[in-house]
């Protein structure tokens, strides 16, 4: 059994460390839903329905697990940002394709799951100038291309924000909310 798990584990390529405990998907979804209205550009970005794309890295079980859990948690909420909402899981097909989808489908939120370490640079470049909030529960991804992240500190969920990246993606949180976050400048 141990050899099987080691074999499975070692077959996956370089990636972020497995987090021993992370912010539960239900808490993440709750935070995203409550946080969106504090973005001054949210109304203009989202329109009548808040659309969320949940990215899955093809071939990554860890990514799929996180995607399914977050989508399910978000689906269970009455409202996101005070509005009706839709969310769907998509296989990642490249940063350019993602940016195109965000523009054409009026995507408000892109959720980046684990195992995207090698794609962050491309994502960062492609989403610059796109009006979308990128979110991830992998705290390392904030400061490497994702605008908003979650981390667990002493068992409490914390918000992380990459302020320069936020500006590039037209995300403008109010000062009242910024004081609740760890801000990367």
């Amino acid at each position: 059994m141990l050899a099987l798990t080691l074999g499975v584990g070692l077959s996956v390529g370089p990636r972020a460390l497995a987090q021993p405990a992370s912010v539960p998907p239900t808490v993440q979804a709750d935070l995203v839903a409550k946080l969106l209205p504090y973005d001054r550009n949210f109304e203009k970005r989202a329109g009548p329905i808040v659309r969320t794309l949940v990215l899955v890295k093809p071939g990554s079980a860890r990514s799929r697990i996180a995607a399914e859990a977050f989508k399910s948690a978000l689906s269970n909420l009455d409202r996101v940002g005070g509005r009706p909402h839709e969310e769907r899981i998509v296989n990642y097909e490249g940063a350019a394709a993602l940016a195109k989808s965000c523009r054409s489908e009026r995507i408000a939120v892109v959720y980046v799951t684990p195992d995207f370490d090698g794609e962050l640079d491309a994502l960062q470049r492609a989403l610059a100038g796109v009006d979308v909030l990128s979110v991830s529960a992998v705290s390392d991804y904030v400061s490497r291309g994702v605008v908003l992240g979650f981390e667990l500190v002493s068992g409490k969920p914390k918000l992380l924000l990459d302020l320069p990246r936020a500006k590039q993606q037209h995300v403008d949180f109010s000062a009242a909310v910024l004081r609740l976050m760890k801000v990367y400048r």
């Binding site: 409550k34 667990l152 914390k158 609740l180």
Partner: peptide, 15 residues
Amino acid sequence: DTESLESALSQSVVT
């Protein structure tokens, strides 16, 4: 008006 958000951030996560 961030109390709802602060409430969500104040809950403990246990394992």
